[in-house]
Nucleic acid binder design. Sequence first.
DNA 1: GCCAACGTTGGC
DNA 2: GCCAACGTTGGC
Length: 157
Amino acid sequence: MTRTRRRYWLMKSEPDAFSIDDLQRVGTEPWNGVRNYQARNFMRDGMQVGDGVLFYHSNTAVPGIAGTATVASAAYPDDTQFDRKSDYFDPKATREEPRWFLIDVEFERKLSRTIPLEEIKQHGERLGEEFALIKRGSRLSVFPVSADQYKFLLSLE
DNA sequence: GCCAACGTTGGC
DNA sequence: GCCAACGTTGGC
């Protein structure tokens, strides 16, 4: 078997809906509800068990990186796409041809403090202006982070 | 295949 | 709550 270098990702969640504390409580959570093709493709085609995840709190008073997690499963179909009663129901998806995939995310640790977006932005030059978190207008909720970016961001803790 | 209209994201 | 930026939908 070939060994694959661990990859890193950033995943956004609105803490009112699901926070790092919620993840700590449940341990592992299926990352359902992603309905963006680019984000889906990262989960379906890019992620592997053991990959590192920066857990980001969005749409909250102080948005920022709140914890770390790991990818805990291979990609599989997001069940909510088949559930008529779910907000994430997709009438065009079928069991035979699912449209949306997810992975399980496992709690690693909560940071001693949330690293605020405002502070991260001050390191744009260090992180690269193309970094999706600080790139103007970027709304992607799942995207790759380089090993260097990962290490640097956590060094701000 | 174009593109206007619409819905969503997410910082502020 | 506002609204800029973006992605998706659907008529043509």
